[in-house]
Amino acid sequence: MTEPRSDSWVAGVWRELGLPGLIDVHVHFMPPRVLAAVWRYFDEAGPLIGVEWPIRYKWPEDERIEHLRSMGVRAFTSLLYPHKPGMAETLNGWGAEFAARVPECVQTGTFFPEASAASYVRRALESGTKVFKVHLQVGGFDPRADELDEVWGLLAESGAIALVHAGSGPVANGYTGPGPFGDVLARHPNLRTVVAHLGAPEFTGFFDLADRFPNVHLDTTMVFVDFTGGLGVFPAAEMPRLRDLGLAGRILFGSDFPNIPYTYAHQLEGLTRLDLGDDWLRAVCWDGPSKLLGVP
């Protein structure tokens, strides 16, 4: 890993592009005890991590919020996710409270395959939740589970967004990869989706889904950086599709802040190094996420 740029560099990039700032679709805020447990898991390089992963921004919540603001991140999510039944509704309540006190936050929720899922997702939608994080790797569940069919239907009908970690990086399980979630999309083709990490490492398979389903988007999180973390290397053969999908507003800037082992600026630096042009960067860093999330 080369030493990445300082975060003081970030604002100059969006200003040179003529943008009002950045929109980051992949940011994690969680209840303190939950986030502390996540950080311990990363510190221990647990089985779902598999590599040394020192978190750079292990800061108090208020400092993390202010850091995003200082870099000009005008809107961001608060991605949270359960790893077992009985957690999701409490997380949704916390997410609603967080969004109410942090105006830049797009209200974010989650769910798990359980009998109550449709009921609490409906309540979350009624409370204003716009994005639902779904982590198939950590949750270890099949997105085609019977308990989730009504949930996917609710999201598709409402226009809410499912941000799904469906790729097999950094560690696969039986429900990751484009096949299982592709079956969900085939049943709910209008579902508005963001595939995390460009679907790494099954980039081509998830780009194929984007070709089939016009509401599928993909985020850049932890791709094109010097630390792959088991996500694989983006294939050069897919660069034309990356360019075209980006210009169409379907590739979205994401960082994984604060759970990254390098500077925030390095994610943006990785995108600038692709040399896909200013119009592509504008679409990825603002126009595409602004349209999807409804950020003016």
Rank of each mutant, 00 (worst) to 15 (best):
T90K: 02
P4I: 05
E150G: 05
L22S: 12
T90P: 00
W59N: 04
D279N: 14
L218M: 15
L191N: 01
T272P: 06
L185R: 02
S158C: 11
G12P: 03
P113S: 11
N92V: 04
P261L: 05
G159F: 05
T129W: 07
T204P: 06
P113C: 11
G246H: 12
L185P: 06
E63P: 02
W286G: 11
R123E: 07
W280H: 10
K291L: 07
V151M: 08
E126T: 12
P31Q: 01
L247H: 08
D142K: 05
W53A: 02
P261S: 05
Q137W: 05
D62K: 10
V184N: 00
F234P: 01
G140D: 07
A75P: 10
F207L: 14
L48H: 10
T77Q: 04
G21Y: 11
D256Y: 01
E3A: 13
V194L: 10
V121E: 05
I251K: 07
A200N: 10
V151T: 00
H67R: 14
M71H: 08
F203N: 04
A145C: 03
P113L: 13
V151G: 03
E66R: 15
L242S: 05
G199V: 11
S6N: 15
L68G: 00
L231I: 13
V27P: 12
P240K: 12
S290L: 04
L80Q: 15
L231E: 04
V171R: 08
L231T: 07
L68I: 06
A196W: 00
A100R: 11
L293N: 07
E52T: 13
G95L: 05
L191Q: 03
R69W: 05
N259S: 14
T129L: 07
R144G: 15
V138W: 04
G246V: 09
A160V: 01
H197N: 09
P240C: 00
A45P: 10
R40K: 11
S255F: 04
R101Q: 14
P31V: 02
S127C: 07
E157H: 07
V27D: 06
A172W: 04
V225S: 10
F141I: 01
E269Q: 14
F227P: 04
L22W: 14
G159H: 10
L163H: 13
T272A: 12
G167Y: 02
G199I: 10
I65R: 06
G288H: 01
S70Y: 12
E89M: 00
R273N: 14
V134G: 04
A99M: 10
G50Y: 03
L35T: 03
F112Q: 00
G179I: 09
P258M: 08
V216L: 02
H165G: 01
T221V: 12
D226A: 15
G232T: 11
H197I: 10
V121I: 12
G294S: 09
F213K: 03
R64H: 12
L17M: 09
A186F: 03
A156Q: 02
L136I: 06
P189R: 09
G288T: 11
E126V: 05
T2I: 12
V184F: 00
V223I: 15
M71N: 03
G50R: 09
V233Y: 14
E3K: 13
P258I: 10
Y120R: 00
F132H: 07
A200G: 11
D256I: 08
A186P: 07
F29Y: 04
R144I: 09
A156H: 01
P178G: 00
W53H: 05
V223K: 03
P60R: 04
K130N: 02
E126N: 13
E104Q: 09
